[in-house]
Design a binder for these strands. Structure first.
Lengths: 337, 337
DNA sequence: GAGGATCTTGTTATCGCTAACAATGGCGGG
DNA sequence: CCCGCCATTGTTAGCGATAACAAGATCCTC
């Protein structure tokens, strides 16, 4: 016997050892009330002795439930998505769900659709899609109904359940903060135009300027990278009238700071800068960056709660949760001149 | 019929529609050679018409193979682990494996052991553990033999398969580079002492100093954070004899740069700095940071290859792959004085 | 103390698939 | 023309769990 490659023990093995039927073992495993205490202990002992662990595949087959949640995210080290992913795994693990990750190289329709397909193949109980761009949302159109779905930072026009960070509010707070410091107006370096996050940050920025009756300077387009922030900064640094800039994320702000530094424009004495995300390093930029902090863990918790609600009760209507970000004040903002 | 909640189609449904037995459908699905072309097409058509997708649980149950790979990583936005995770998912997806992630809050023994347990419960075909500290390796001791396992940046003394970045070589290159620029010696800010990565970087630093016959200054302890780099920098900035510093990672280096900037010590004119990791932002630090770049995608590819080899042939002996990092020269290094 | 409710346990069927074997029909060789 | 081989397809038996039902044992009530 010992010489053989022993297959891992099944429920019947436990049953035999404990002197009960396999069904009783199943009952013990699932905490059914009607099992005598003594029997329960015998079964538990047998389980421990054999090192038995239930076969999820068999259980999934008969119950039709997989206890698996799929997450689709962009394969990137962008701070926001990466944090979200980690927070989600944590929250799901606590709820007894396993998390399967489908990471995509780009957020185009095909990539997202492919990742979703792979998850459906696995019969996930629910799906979380971090879908901050239109093409991602589009890819979800064709999804079979009935699969619980939560999107993060997706399009609020869509009908499915959604968790978003209130980007516009964050952007408005950032812009107001700069105006309150005495700046006549605030320039904005935006994220890639197809990202909703970027669009809402623009919207919040515009709203704050209009509320204050400030002149609206031309929008500076960029992507999320430090490189694009640097490029934008090299241009802005030549324009003396630019005294306050709101960057769409902290990495851009970093590039911006360097461009200003190279051109001899001091931050915050000559130019004030505010970022978005509050990456852990933001406090150590030169100077420390005032920025907007969204709570990724709050997003993840809310998202998972909504998803579990849908899984438990498929009738749950689409829902919407908005997480408010907070402004973190550091040294990169000062009055003009 | 349409009024009923229709359960998703099974193989027999496809078989009925195509006018064959379910076994023939199975053969088509698994690309068995002995199926008439015409039959194959009929089955394919039926599959498409019903939108049939095979039930992984049923397949896993009968074959005993799960096509699932588990990854255990720290739940953090540390750049290294996050990049590795993304790279792994990508590589595994290409090989037709799903990836289940178990993220842990801390890298202590219990957390790791728990995450491993959860994966074993899921009957993963193989396990990748990013285990850069001793406690993580320890947690793997008790693992049942026979589960394919690859650790990343783990302890080379252990007997299991391992992929590591050659931290020592990277550290030596960084230190040599500073010495070659004319510095009499190089100070080092280290990572947390229980991380192997940190230990090897210290080792490489020491080796380079000794090779060159340079004096070995006291080691400055820190963790991976920008904050700890900043603290270390505030101390080093007061010491005029410090002209070259090798930081254990880029975030520390960022904190260092800010501390030097605050104390009026210019980089690179007064002090040269080299980091480790090459985070995307490193090129936009003030000044742009010379650093060491490990290839995370190479690590992930190598790790997955080794894992798949073990999965396919359980007899595969433990193996070891070392990935060499490269020095990326930017503007943070100059001759002294 | 009889009868029914309740607790406890066991028996059987079933989930959807693959593996093993059986059955059929066409083909070529002797 | 018979036999055996191969290509093709079907039949049957599980994989390891849960669900549904059945059946003793125990308990309570009147």
């Amino acid at each position: 016997m010992d010489g053989q490659a022993t297959r891992s023990p099944a429920m019947t093995d436990v049953a035999r050892l404990a002197g009960v039927s396999h069904q009783t073992v199943s009952r013990v495993l699932n905490d059914h009330p009607n099992v005598r205490e003594q029997t329960r202990l015998r079964v538990r002992a047998a389980i421990a002795e054999l090192g038995y662990r239930p076969n999820r595949a068999a259980r999934a087959l008969v119950t039709g439930r997989s206890q698996l949640i799929g997450i689709v995210a962009q394969n990137s080290t962008l701070y926001g998505p990466a944090s979200l992913l980690a927070a989600f795994e944590q929250a799901a693990a606590e709820a007894g769900f396993a998390v399967s990750v489908g990471s995509v190289g780009r957020l185009d329709r095909e990539s997202i659709a492919g990742a979703v397909e792979r998850h459906l193949d696995q019969r996930v109980a629910g799906l979380v899609v971090i879908a901050p761009v239109k093409s991602a949302d589009d890819a979800l159109e064709g999804m079979p109904a009935g699969v619980p779905l939560v999107t993060i930072d997706g399009d609020p026009e869509r009908s499915h359940t959604l968790v978003t960070v209130d980007q516009a509010a964050g952007a408005r707070a950032a812009t107001r903060h700069l105006l309150a410091a005495g700046h006549r107006t605030v320039w904005h370096i935006s994220g890639p135009p197809d990202w909703y996050d970027a669009a809402w940050r623009i919207e919040g920025w515009l709203a704050a300027l209009r509320e204050a009756g400030a002149e609206v300077p031309p929008l500076v387009n960029a992507d999320w990278s430090a490189a694009s922030g640097y490029d934008a900064g090299r241009m802005l640094a030549r324009m003396p009238e630019v005294t306050a800039v709101f960057a769409a994320n902290d990495h851009q702000a970093l590039g911006l700071l360097r461009a200003f530094s190279e051109h001899g424009r001091r931050v915050p004495q000559d130019v004030s800068v505010v970022g978005f995300d509050d990456v852990p390093e933001a406090a150590f930029f030169i100077p420390p960056l005032t920025t907007v902090r969204p709570s990724f863990s709050a997003v993840a918790r809310a998202g998972l709660d909504l998803l579990l609600a849908q899984i438990t009760d498929p009738g749950t209507p689409p829902n919407r949760v908005v997480i408010a970000p907070v402004l973190v004040e550091r040294a990169s903002v000062a009055p003009p001149g």
